[in-house]
Design a protein around this nucleic acid. Structure first.
Lengths: 222, 222
DNA sequence: CGCTTTGTTGACACTCGTCAAACTAAGTGG
DNA sequence: CCACTTAGTTTGACGAGTGTCAACAAAGCG
């Protein structure tokens, strides 16, 4: 599984706009997390910022009775765990075996006061997280199950390859908890999309490769 | 339009941490919006940043068929319309007759590069918007109607007075579109909470004053 | 080749949405 | 001042969409 993923550090957007190592005066190192293992927990002190080198990560919140809302998936190249408070607001777990680059975090005050460009990058990244959350609120509050799944496939296609071929790293339950649905509803929506011809499945391994018809999905997505 | 503009010394927490006028080199002025009128539209260029002086504002997104998701309510003292891209990502409307203070916006680049403290304030405000959106995703994705309404009342109490007495400026439809419900479901949830003794209504005017039992509501909220 | 995990599908239940009616409050003009 | 209108709220009846529970199939794995 994921045998062909080859990391090319040189082609990956470098963390914090290429400013980390020399400006933040910190050590960057790589670390491996096995599928399902926790990278950090909600309310833990935020010591590091992370970048996905290979694999995928989910960030989620829990209610007291175990209901889970995944706020975002972090894919290759994405930065996550960026907080300017002292603690993490999500739990982060590896969706599959995942390599991450770690950067020891500085306090926000020192960062923002010491480097204009870095401060701007922090703001840009935070804003892009905010924008994603804003769009996701619309999805969670107002879209139907079919629209959510269509939007999800389009998002993953855009972020993974952008060519209409998607190999999802996450399972149905993860998708469901991202979309505010149950895994059964996600499965049914995918079957329906398959029936419409908007999605085709290649190979019959568990983590199927999907061929998606972006025009058709876009029409469903509003 | 712009008939009542009058410049005033700050009697409330001044915008952008008291740095606007002298640091951002801009004019602050007040303006009045009548109930229901639009302050800015989604995708319009972001020329100003706003602060609520009196009244209340809703920020929302629409789907093509008219479904609406309110992302946030802005109450007295709140700053809104803060974008670092060139355009607004929400439409903003006055919920009731509302006075706002306007500050002409600078481009993000110039702001962040010219003032450390201002850059930090921008980041702090953006982060607090992000945190609200993250919490709201959990509500929209995973909470029941009753839990959403309970959480809403607690949020409004906290932000308006914090003493368990709430006078909501917005109508049932606004609440519904904020919580991802219908107005009927909101009304039923409030009736149920009233039945539980978690909410009491004072006076019988339209915009009732509510007495809320925060302990009881907190138990429902998870 | 069993065993476990993940995904699919069906039957059914239930929450919430839809539609409709009654009611209250507020605004308007004669 | 009072009918009349308009906007907003509440409540009921009903139905649709999604969740729940269960059975089965498929895939991964030792």
């Amino acid at each position: 599984m994921f045998a062909h993923v080859n990391v090319r550090p040189a082609t990956m957007p470098s963390i914090l706009g290429g400013l980390t190592a020399r400006h933040a005066n910190c050590i960057t190192s790589e670390f491996h997390y096995r599928k399902g293992s926790e990278i950090y927990g909600e309310k833990e002190p935020a010591e590091y910022v992370y970048q996905v080198v290979s694999g995928a990560v989910r960030s989620y919140k829990l209610l007291s009775d175990g209901r889970r809302q995944i706020g975002a998936f972090h894919l290759v190249g994405d930065i996550f765990g960026l907080e300017n408070a002292e603690t993490h607001r999500f739990t982060a777990e590896a969706v599959v075996d995942t390599d991450v680059r770690l950067i020891r975090r500085m306090s926000l005050e020192r960062v923002a006061d010491s480097d204009f460009a870095l401060a701007r990058n922090l703001l840009i990244m935070t804003t892009s997280n905010l924008q994603h959350a804003e769009d996701h609120m619309l999805l969670l509050g107002r879209k139907t199950a079919l629209e959510r799944v269509a939007a999800f496939l389009l998002e993953m296609d855009r972020r993974l390859t952008g060519v209409g071929v998607v190999a999802l790293p996450m399972c149905r339950r993860d998708i469901a908890d991202y979309l505010g649905l149950t895994l059964e509803t996600v499965s049914r929506a995918l079957s329906k999309l398959h029936g419409y011809g908007a999605v085709d499945f290649l190979g019959s391994n568990q983590r199927e490769i999907m061929l998606i018809d972006r025009d058709q999905l876009s029409r469903l997505d509003n």
